[in-house]
Design a protein around this nucleic acid. Structure first.
Lengths: 249, 249
DNA sequence: CGTAACTTTGACTTGCTTCAAGGTGTGTGG
DNA sequence: CCACACACCTTGAAGCAAGTCAAAGTTACG
């Protein structure tokens, strides 16, 4: 079980931390096609009132599967992953979460996955009890959560789509393009792609072995589609070709 | 695009069709652990007021990927599937839906998947426009949808979990046990399991080839775990062994 | 009763995993 | 500041599981 008061570092720089942000596509209405902020300023302020800023160091646990759910976290910066441990000892990375995402979805009052910080993560820690009350007073917030969760549902389906029935190279290519899009949403870095995760995490996310991931990267490099500048830094040389390989037309 | 007024059969027996039902586990509170009705009687009645009962025949399309989203459907009886067609021509079954499930989640006003009836399906057809208004007047309904969608998210993750990184036999075993649980929720049929879908659908759901599914069933039969009574009727001889094989401990 | 759709089975091939060993980077203590 | 140790990544070789291709068997239905 997470005991944030102990594990979590509190720093002065939290004073000017960005407000809680939830990005999602609209659910019911046709709206703008893109992903946008679904909280009003009022709601963001209300969330700040009941939340506290926290920071997780690299590799630190955020929540544990099966533990009593007490908080959800709204990521301000950094990258995290959620995963399940299978009875045979293997690990399955279910989702990779970025700024404006939510960590901590639960069922029956208990977390269904384990979450871990991949980089340093700053987040708003929102007590579920307080959120429950806020949702009752402000139904619009409920709609915002609905948008977010249905958006996550589609993310999960996308993940399922790339994972199943595609060969290893296509999966890796799809992953790189996806990650690049996520990154491009926050910062412009040309064709450089900073990987916030280890090969092992990529493998467990794509349902491959570490060796396969490595071999695929080598293959993509030999084909001139990418360049491995450093372990965690790739250069995407031919994004259209990667997309084609990934079967994204 | 679906044009329900034309494709859909209307029958007199709709008069006493069961009210709209949404089953889901609670989202925020600890509540009962099981899956339960999340609509009040009032809400169910309100939904009836704006909906109409429809019936889809076996193999009939319910919605088409990319088409303008106008309705969602609340299944009363029968089984349906949703799927995506990949650019390489392969098909990926994303979900299998039963009574009390919802069909028709959309993004940006368009359906994200194609849905098809696997058996005869009876459902309440709810216009999105009307639902939107109702949700505004009744925030609790919004919460109900939230429960349902977060429940579906977990279903999708379960699917992802069984699909990736398990061998074919384990996937098939997991599928059979899952289907049995779904079926047991509505009717008691001993150890008999009625498959509402073809081998092809099972294959596309599990990310296997039709031949692999068939071979796995043969293998499970030879091991004494199941019996193939008819094409679409299996007898589960040893559910615990199937669960163990599926890695459900 | 015949045809078409569906399912099963067999033989072969491909691609991923596993096992094993060799690199490369990083952080720590001498 | 260097050297060592450890964690992480890459590469190679062998084995095996699932896919593909081909054909026969079965069921459903007109």
């Amino acid at each position: 079980m997470t005991t944030p008061g102990i594990q979590v570092t509190r720093l002065g720089k939290f004073d000017n931390m960005p407000l809680p942000t939830i990005l999602a596509a609209s659910f019911l209405d046709a709206g703008g096609h893109g992903v946008a902020q679904v909280l009003t300023h009022r709601e963001r302020a209300a969330l700040v009132g009941m939340s506290r800023p926290v920071e997780f160091k690299r590799d630190q646990m955020i929540q544990t599967e099966g533990a009593r759910a007490e908080f959800i976290w709204n990521i301000v910066s950094g990258t995290a992953e959620t995963y399940c441990l299978l009875p045979d000892g293997t690990r399955r990375v279910m989702s990779i979460l970025f700024a404006a995402d939510l960590i901590g979805l639960s069922e029956g009052g208990h977390y269904v996955e384990t979450a871990r910080a991949l980089t340093e993560v700053r987040a708003w820690e929102i007590p579920l009890r307080a959120l429950d009350g806020l949702v009752r007073r402000d139904p619009r917030l409920d709609a915002a959560l609905l948008c977010k969760i249905s958006h996550e549902l589609r993310e999960s389906e996308r993940h399922l789509l790339t994972t199943a029935r595609q060969d290893a190279r296509a999966r890796v290519a799809a992953f790189l393009v996806w990650l690049k899009q996520k990154e491009a949403a926050t910062l412009h870095s040309g064709d450089l792609l900073e990987l916030p995760l280890r090969r092992e995490d990529i493998a467990d996310y794509l349902g491959l072995s570490v060796e396969s991931v490595s071999r695929c990267l080598g293959q993509l490099e030999r084909s001139g589609l990418i360049l491995r500048e450093q372990r965690r830094t790739l250069r995407l040389m031919d994004v259209p070709a990667l997309q084609k390989l990934a079967g994204m037309d």
